[in-house]
């Protein structure tokens, strides 16, 4: 079913940004982790529709936080 409006513009949907390979390596090095240790996001997640995601890519989510105004969150794209 097609959505009647673009949900990424809805105020409850935080901004989703795809990280480049370079940024991804920097992130993984920063936290000294492998890609598996990141939280996950489903490849079929409606918020990723326009980003054309592939499994293994990292999505940065910038969202509002009650404690620190905005906060960054990173999720790795997985299938199922």
């Amino acid at each position: 079913m097609e959505t009647q409006f673009n949900i990424t513009e809805h105020f409850l949907v935080p901004e989703h940004i795809k990280l480049t390979e370079e940024e991804k390596t920097i992130l993984l090095n920063k936290y000294n982790i492998t890609i598996k240790q990141l939280p996950m996001i489903d490849i079929k997640d409606p918020a990723l529709k326009d980003l054309n995601p592939k499994v293994g890519e990292v999505i940065k989510i910038v969202r509002w936080s009650p404690t620190s105004k905005t906060t960054e969150f990173y999720r790795v794209v997985v299938d199922g």
Partner: peptide
Amino acid sequence: YDETVRDANDNIVQFTYGEDGL
């Protein structure tokens, strides 16, 4: 030690504790 919240397998749950690190 890097202020991330992790579970027993060292998976990241939150990137900064409480999102403000307080």
